[in-house]
Every structure is written in C-alpha cells, then in structure tokens.
C-alpha cells in the first residue's frame, strides 16, 4: 500500500511534479558530480603538484576566504580585501561603459549624418584588441584603479555601442510615425519608443560585455595591482600555492556564472514582452 493512494489528488499531482522536477534536475546535472569525482580520483592517483584534487582546492578556498568571523558573513579579511576592489572596478567600469555606450549608440543610430562622421572611428576603435591599450593606459594613468577601470571601459564599450547603434537604427518606421502623429516629445520618444524597441539588441550587447568585463578585470589586475582577485592569482603563482591558484580560477568561474545568471534573470524580466511576443508569432 503506497501512501500516495490516500492523499488528496491535488497533493498527488504536486508530489509528482516535485518528483518530476527532481528527476529533470538529475538528468541535467548528473555529469557534474561524476566529473568532480573522476577528477578527485585521477588527481589523487597522479599526485601532481600542479593538479591538486578538488577537495584540497575547496579546503584552500575555505581557508583563504570563507573562514572569517560571522559578523563579516564568514568572509576573511583577505576575501574582503580582494573581492570588494575587484567587484567595484568591474561594476564601475561596466556601468560607465553602459552609460556611454548606450547614450552614444542611440545618438549614432538615430542620426544618419552623425553616424556617417563617426562610423569609421567606431570600426577602427573596436578592431583594436583592448589589451593592446593596457601599456598606454599604464603610462597615462600609472598602475592602479584608474588604469584598470579605463581598460575595462574601453574593452567593454564596443559590443554595447555597436548593438545600441543597430537597435536604435532599425526601430520600426511605423513606430516612429505613430509617435510623430500623436505628437510625442523627444524625451518620450527616446524613453518610450526608441529604447524599448532597441532593448533586445542592447541587452544582447550587454550580455557579451559582462563576460568581457571579467576577462579585462583579471587582465588589468594581473598586469599591475596590489589588490583584487587578479592580484591574488599572481600572488598564489609567485608563492607556488597551486591549491590557492586553482581556488581563484574556480572562484572566477563561479563569478562569471553568477553574473551571467543574474544578468539573464534581469533580461527575462525586462524583455519578457519580447520573448513572449516572439513565441506567439
């Protein structure tokens, strides 16, 4: 006699749904524990100094960052000293690039003449690989936060700019005509028509830029910094602390994953109209 037969039908379906979700989750992520286990066994067997087993990496990460006092959310001073400056640069640079990129992009997208003058410069600017500007920024800004933020802004702005131009340029003619006929002012057109219409494109650019921002944050900190996650990376390397180094790598993977997931969550909310409209047609 199974307990389910005595349950009310609603409860049964709920349980089934939960079971279904659980099994769906299992079919999706089963490979991860398998890979981690295989990695653990393999590295223990090989006993290479360069490839510490995952358990050791986790222990080192805990020791480095998460064994702090409860008042600091268990974060150690090292963690606070490394994460906060890095994240501040990351988000600061990204925010500046967003404002500049979207603002300039919409202006260029809406004005054919302006775009005509600026287009070749944009094409050239985005063709320069951003790290190539690091040596210049080092000379101009010296080593430090300014140089790092400049690197992030320069590297991240292009996908935002290009996509904003594209999105603003191809707003449906009839949308603009409707706005004109009903006498909408400039600000209203910008915020209620152009930006929403260009939204899907702009978000595509923003998503690309998040990944780039992490790369450039690490790069700029590796090149010259006295704090931050990238600094931690070069510090562990110099001290031949391989478990520590792997911890930083894993941490950066998690950071990228979390950033991407939160970004997608925001995008889903903001652009839900777009997703659902596309499903219906």
């Amino acid at each position: 006699m199974s307990a389910a037969t005595t349950l009310p039908p609603a409860e049964v379906t709920k349980r089934r749904a939960r079971g279904g979700r659980l099994s769906a989750l299992v079919t999706r992520v089963w490979l991860i524990p398998v890979v981690v286990a295989a990695w653990e066994i393999g590295t223990r067997q090989a006993a290479s100094a360069y490839f510490p087993p995952p358990s050791q990496i986790v222990a080192r990460a805990y020791e480095l960052w998460f064994s702090g006092p409860a008042a600091h959310l268990f974060l150690t001073d090292d963690a606070l000293g490394d994460f906060l400056p890095s994240l501040a640069r990351l988000f600061g640079g990204w925010a500046v690039a967003c404002v500049l990129g979207i603002g300039l992009g919409v202006a260029l997208g809406r004005s054919r003449a302006l775009a005509g003058y600026i287009d070749p410069l944009v094409e050239f600017g985005r063709a320069i690989p951003p790290p190539a500007l690091v040596p210049l920024f080092i000379v101009i800004f010296k080593l430090g936060t300014e140089m790092q933020v400049a690197t992030i802004v320069y590297g991240v702005i292009w996908p935002i700019l290009i996509n904003s131009i594209d999105g603003a340029r191809y707003v449906d003619r009839l949308h603009m005509d409707t706005a004109e006929v009903f006498g909408m002012g400039r600000a209203q057109r910008l915020f209620r028509i152009i930006l929403p219409a260009a939204g899907p494109k702009i978000f595509a650019g923003l998503r690309l830029s998040v990944a780039l921002a992490v790369i450039l944050m690490v790069l700029s900190e590796l090149v010259g910094s006295t704090d931050g996650i990238g600094y931690q990376l070069s510090y562990t390397q110099m001290n031949f602390d391989l478990a520590g180094m792997w911890s930083v790598i894993v941490l950066l993977g998690v950071l990228g994953l979390v950033l991407n997931a939160s970004f997608l969550a925001v995008e889903r909310r903001v652009l839900s109209w777009h997703r659902r409209a596309r499903q219906t047609t």
Partner: peptide, 20 residues
C-alpha cells in the same frame, strides 16, 4: 505633423507598441 490629429494606420499591428 499637425497637432490635434490622429491616424489609424493600415498596418495597425506594427503601429501598436509590443512592449506596452
């Protein structure tokens, strides 16, 4: 475009804003 004028466009579906 003169003020105080309204238009119902032939291509009505494109003249509505899908994000609103």
């Amino acid at each position: 475009t003169p003020g105080d004028l309204a238009v119902v466009f032939q291509d009505y579906s494109r003249s509505l804003f899908p994000w609103m």
